[in-house]
Amino acid sequence: MIRRAAVAAALALLPQDASAHAFSSGRDLYAQFIEGAGVPLVTPAIILALLPLGLLAGLWRRDGMVQVWPWFIAGLLAGGLAAPLAGPDVVVAAMGVGVVCAVLAALGPDLPRLTVAALAALAGGLAAAVALEGHGFGELPLLIYAGISLGAHLVTVVPAAAVSATLDRWPAAWLRIGWRVVASWSGAIGLMLLAFQLR
């Protein structure tokens, strides 16, 4: 009895794999999907990487998000595959890319398509890596991966669509500048949080 308790205690004290998000929805398929979808919506590093990307895509061109969407999806897939290799520093990298996207969106330069596409792939990849960091490939139920993909799309596509739709409806200079101010604020928040992470 004592030996069994000692073995249990030793197992409990063994170092566990560090995972950014411990998924616990069990066998309920719907709960798995919702739990996955919630991760990008509540993780500051993912929000601060993807929201500025959406703003950048929407401000860049009217159909900017559509143009870079395949790159974004490819980035998500690559990030998911590379997540087992990612360490905690991936959070810093994701926020760094978010700050770059926010600054570019705020300053409003005329960017080549390749630059925005590369940022979409990078931000998508790092967001997936942050969401799945510490988890082995295929370790989680498939619906959690699907949920994470939906959540990441929501954080990116909704702001991009909001920018494009409003500028389409009211093509006024003040509105474009208003969105650039929003991008500037998101970049400022990202910059401060980056400093907190590096402290």
């Binding site: 705020a106 500048i177 500037s184 970049g187 400022a188 401060m192 400093a195 402290r199």
Partner: peptide
Amino acid sequence: IWILPVVFPLVMAFGGALGVAG
């Protein structure tokens, strides 16, 4: 009038980051 509020938060956050980083 619109450019200054775009630039100011980013530069101020940079100053804030310097402060946070010590």
